[in-house]
């Protein structure tokens, strides 16, 4: 597959439309509906508990155009959270004791009000996570960001699909691995990834193709050894994440004739223990325009929270959101296969 330089949306591709993706993944097939399979967990329908992670997508703009991106992010995407919507996030957070605020995108740093927002969230005394693609920290105009993040004790979570350039550049673009190593050195210099500093720096692995992730513990050892020995860089933990059959990865699966086999693998690998710990149980996902979702994947499929829960920040009500029934689809098999998958990696 050729490298991408723009989003699917920019090219007017059919699968850039959420409804077209849903038609593919929810088509009538031999696969049992996810809700049926979830019954094996023994809890009835999938339901949320207390919100522990308030995940905010600050916009779809990104300096990279990764082949598997579930957001279809890229430099051409203009959807960016405004300061007014950020204020709604702060208002919602103020009403609650949600301990963690998880900032994602796109490249969240590309939001022009990123620094202001981080500073305001910090005043609320919440733990902040930024999902940084690393290369943005090497881009012109973003040189001061590593120090800003360190000063605010922000946890950084970054994708690095392999400990070598080959796989990484194949998925994320030519030269991404080299720039990522350069950014990691800067972060390490500030104390990130070093146990004694308290500055947390985690990496994310996701498969570069139509297969499931390796064991998180085993791969973390390989990453630590190879990155330390060959590039002199360190990090705290590795999270392994499964590719969701949506957006660009869905397009890849269809184009390469891997869709049926990949879905079959996800269904066959359904693990009730992983399903019992899916991230939507403790996460609320907020889009750039303030709408509420059960997870970032549902956000991209435009499947708002439902079953009586408020669907926009303007109507935020933590009590109504708690115990909400999660909106599910066949893509949910991506979070329940094998050791499971979440924004914090494997769940079992």
């Amino acid at each position: 597959m050729q490298a991408r330089h723009k989003s699917m949306k920019a090219f007017g591709e059919k699968l850039a439309i959420a409804n077209e993706q849903l038609k593919v993944i929810n088509q009538e097939t031999a696969f049992p509906h996810f809700d049926e399979k979830y019954e094996l967990v023994g809890e009835g329908f999938l339901k949320a508990g207390d919100i522990e992670i308030f995940q905010i997508n600050l916009g779809k703009m990104c300096n990279q155009v990764c082949k598997h991106c579930h957001v279809d992010a890229g430099p051409d995407r203009k959807e960016i959270m405004t300061k007014e919507t950020m204020q709604l996030c702060l208002d919602a957070l103020s009403q609650t004791n949600i301990p963690t605020v998880d900032l994602t995108g796109g490249a969240p740093e590309m939001n022009p009000n990123f620094n202001w927002f981080v500073t305001e969230v910090k005043k609320l005394n919440r733990h902040i996570i930024v999902r940084s693609n690393l290369t943005i920290l090497e881009a012109n105009g973003f040189e001061d960001y590593p120090k800003f993040l360190a000063d605010n004790e922000v946890e950084i979570v970054s994708s690095l699909p392999y400990y070598k350039a080959s796989f990484t550049d194949k998925q994320r673009g030519e030269g991404v691995f080299g720039k990522s190593m350069a950014a990691m050195k800067k972060l390490n210099k500030l104390g990130y990834g070093k146990d004694e500093s308290g500055l947390i720096f985690n990496l994310v692995y996701n498969p570069v193709g139509a297969f499931l992730p390796p064991s998180q513990t085993s791969l973390e050892k390989d990453y630590k050894r190879e990155l330390q020995n060959k590039f002199g860089v360190v990090f705290n933990n590795l999270f392994t994440i499964t590719n969701m059959p949506i957006s660009r990865f869905l397009d890849y699966l269809i184009q390469t004739g891997n869709y049926e086999a990949y879905m079959q693998k996800l269904v066959d690998s359904f693990n009730p223990a992983a399903a019992a710990n899916v991230m939507c149980k403790n996460t609320l996902s907020v889009s750039w325009d303030g709408q509420l979702y059960d997870c970032d994947f549902n956000q991209m499929l435009e499947l708002n929270v439902n079953h009586g829960a408020p669907t926009h920040l303007e109507d935020f009500d933590a009590k109504k959101l708690k115990s909400r029934r999660i909106v599910t689809g066949q893509h949910c098999y991506g979070c329940t296969a094998g050791a499971g998958s979440s924004c914090g990696g494997a769940v079992v």
Binding site: Y162, K164, S166, F167, P207, G209, F211, L212, P213, P214, S215, S218, L219, D222
Partner: peptide, 12 residues
Amino acid sequence: TEASLEKGADLE
């Protein structure tokens, strides 16, 4: 081939 990829190996 699939198992090697799923255990963290690459083409090299």
